[in-house]
């Protein structure tokens, strides 16, 4: 694909996050690797606790340095963010990388107006006058589809609905026109009809501004509508990476397949849902080799050996030694997916 030829915008290489716990440390993610091309929309999916949010925060440099530690590399156009001094990182955040969160109310400051919070971001990173910052903030509000942006500039967060708050968050994140937006479950707290609006706005802005987006979510449906590539995480590791359309029809990792098949579909009424047996292993008690192997219907003795993330044909990467021999169902039964 074309992202192989272009210089990647972001290259995450063997990123591991550790949190301090008591006297020791727990490893929260292990060897997370993926790349993003400029302007590319990538979905990062997994169930709660799989490490997707921690990965997002690590990219943004928002994990508390006193209680966490990172290993590996995060390269933004070749520049290593982990090795970078905090002051340089601060200049980068908000300008070249931005992040939006699930709950806009807790991310916005309740005592400042929406407009003030947008201008503040702008003035922190760019040398602009107050008047110009105001104009550009109003422009940003208009761009995310907030009606009457001039009036809303002076609104406080509590005066806005959930959907409007999330739009305001997006306006703050995008006002400096970053190259990369990390969207962590940006629509989970919203109703479906509002979610559709927000996803629409995000997609349109990314395309228009040529911005790349890492869309962190547990909702595979949303990923299929917004992203072209998908990274699946399980128990702190990336287990599969590939094109969304390919993975939906032909997942290569049994966990991706299990996730896709457990979605209740509108059409398959009353049929038994193929749930994944067992539960996610707890940190500190990870099974040997493949971390999914105790719950996997296809597990065999070789699965207890360490599993590298490796390239598979025609494209994509999988952490499963049986990827070539298994034919796994995705959103459709195997025979229909052919």
């Amino acid at each position: 694909m074309d992202h192989a030829v272009k210089q990647p915008l972001l290259e995450v290489n063997k990123l591991s996050a550790f949190f301090r716990a008591g006297r020791g440390e727990v490893q929260v993610t292990r060897d997370v690797s993926f790349t993003m091309a400029p302007g590319e929309m990538v979905g990062l999916v997994g169930e709660s606790g799989c490490g997707k949010t921690v990965t997002g925060l690590a990219l943004m440099g928002l994990l508390p340095p006193a209680s966490s530690r990172l290993e590996g590399k995060i390269l933004l156009q070749g520049q290593d963010l982990i090795a970078m001094p905090p002051s340089a990182k601060r200049r980068l955040r908000g300008r070249r990388i931005s992040m939006i969160f699930q709950e806009p109310m807790s991310a916005l400051d309740p005592v400042f107006t929406i407009g003030h919070q947008i201008s503040e971001t702008l003035r922190a990173h760019q040398d602009v006058s107050r008047a110009e910052a105001r104009n550009r903030a109003i422009e940003a509000l208009a761009r995310v589809g907030i009606p009457e942006p001039t009036l809303r500039y002076d609104a406080y967060p509590h005066q806005l609905s959930g959907g409007m708050r999330q739009r305001a968050m997006i306006a703050i994140a995008l006002v400096c026109e970053p190259q990369l937006l990390i969207a962590d479950e940006p629509t989970t707290a919203l109703d479906v009809t509002v979610q559709a609006q927000i996803v629409d706005v995000l997609g349109e802005l990314c395309t228009r501004m040529g911005m790349a987006m890492l869309f962190i979510t547990h909702d595979l449906g949303l990923v299929s509508q917004t992203c072209s590539r998908l990274v699946t995480m399980y128990a702190g590791e990336v287990v599969e990476e590939g094109r969304v359309d390919d993975i939906l029809l032909r997942p290569r990792h049994p966990y991706s397949s299990g996730l896709l098949r457990s979605l209740p579909a509108l059409t398959q009424r009353k049929a038994r849902l193929p749930a994944i047996p067992g539960r996610v292993p707890v940190r500190g008690d990870m099974p040997p080799g493949c971390r999914f192997q105790p719950r996997c219907a296809h597990a065999q003795p070789p699965c207890t050996a360490p599993q590298p993330l490796r390239a598979v044909q025609p494209q994509g990467e999988v952490r499963c030694c049986r990827a070539e021999e298994l034919i796994l169902p995705g959103v459709l039964p195997v025979e229909r997916a052919a």
Partner: peptide
């Protein structure tokens, strides 16, 4: 509109 807004996991084509 509700049905339309529901994100269904399906390949683009």
């Amino acid at each position: 509109a509700l049905l339309s807004a529901e994100p269904v996991a399906l390949p683009s084509h």
